[in-house]
Design a protein around this nucleic acid. Sequence first.
RNA 1: GCACAGGUGGCCGAGCGGUUAAUGGCAGCAGACUGUAAAUCUGCCACUCAUUCGAGUUACGGAGGUUCGAAUCCUCCCCUGUGCA
Length: 315
Amino acid sequence: MSMADEDSVAKALPLAVVLLGPTGSGKTALSLALAEHSNGEIISCDSVAVYRGMNLGTAKPSAEDRTRVPHHLIDVADPDEAFTAGEYSRRARAALGEIAAAGKLPIVTGGTGLYLRALTEGLFVGPARHEDLRVRLRKSAIRRGSGWLHRILGRLDPASAARIHANDTPKLVRAVEVCLAGRKPMSEMLTRDPLTGFRLLRIGLNPPRAELYDRLNERCGEMFAAGLVDETRGLLARYGPVKSLDSLGYRQARSVLDGSATEQEALAATQQGHRNYAKRQLTWFRREPDVHWFETFGDDPEGVRFATELVHANR
RNA sequence: GCACAGGUGGCCGAGCGGUUAAUGGCAGCAGACUGUAAAUCUGCCACUCAUUCGAGUUACGGAGGUUCGAAUCCUCCCCUGUGCA
């Protein structure tokens, strides 16, 4: 088969852009630019932006941005709902299908590595979260230590036990839960269901680390100045101390509300948390296959131009 | 000026004569990651050389001293905090 034939076959599939990068790298700016240049719609891939009412701490695209370009998977759950990677994957794939069917370009924009992988590679076919089992396991783990959990997993599923560190309680809990609920070792449920029907063009943003950290510091300051503590107070009053309010920024805002930290301290802790988080995101994304990396911020005009050309060239 | 308390690796902070390049924690860097993931966990982290075992150099405010041996004891000096003047 000639190159041209391969090309034409490949191009029979609709294109989907995946824009990834750490918080504060300018994904939103670049995604908007790409969407406007290419008649696109944006699918957010962010485990906190899915929650309604959590606005200031998530740096969601503004209302204006969202009228300029349609956004999906933002504000789709209440903060007291348990949202999961599986749920994300299903909904995002549905959105992808609809956008492509309408002849528009889907642009997945994300910082949540696990959700992105759930979308592109799928999760294994196995039991979803089993609340009772999980609660019991977690309790025993607290009493008997994570080493105990690790030994249990070793008996149930040696392969998984070898892969998960004995101190990593949450992962151990889930693995044991899966083995028990699924009645067989988790490592035997490895079949994933990858996304099909699209050509993915991955664009990664990796601006200079020091500048990224500066921007994050600044952005956190803006979040607090804009009233993150007040927003948190309102959400807390309405939903109680739910899991989603443990996320970055909200957790620290809560420490102001319960008097265990000053606003100054909470801000510093939030900035620190964002810097650490950005670092972890980068570690995750470096493993993503076939990423076209840009060493700039997403609002860098040069970067926008290159990215736009890249998208056009692949359409 | 006097009296206490203190000055330890980027920061905080243990150690108070010898298993010591110096417990911890933080920051930093690197890594992992299968429905809690903005979560959770791991490794490295004075400098130089060595692929490995390792070797060497410089380090606990400064200068001397005591000792086989000092971050740890003594003397003087320089800073910092608190109290009294």
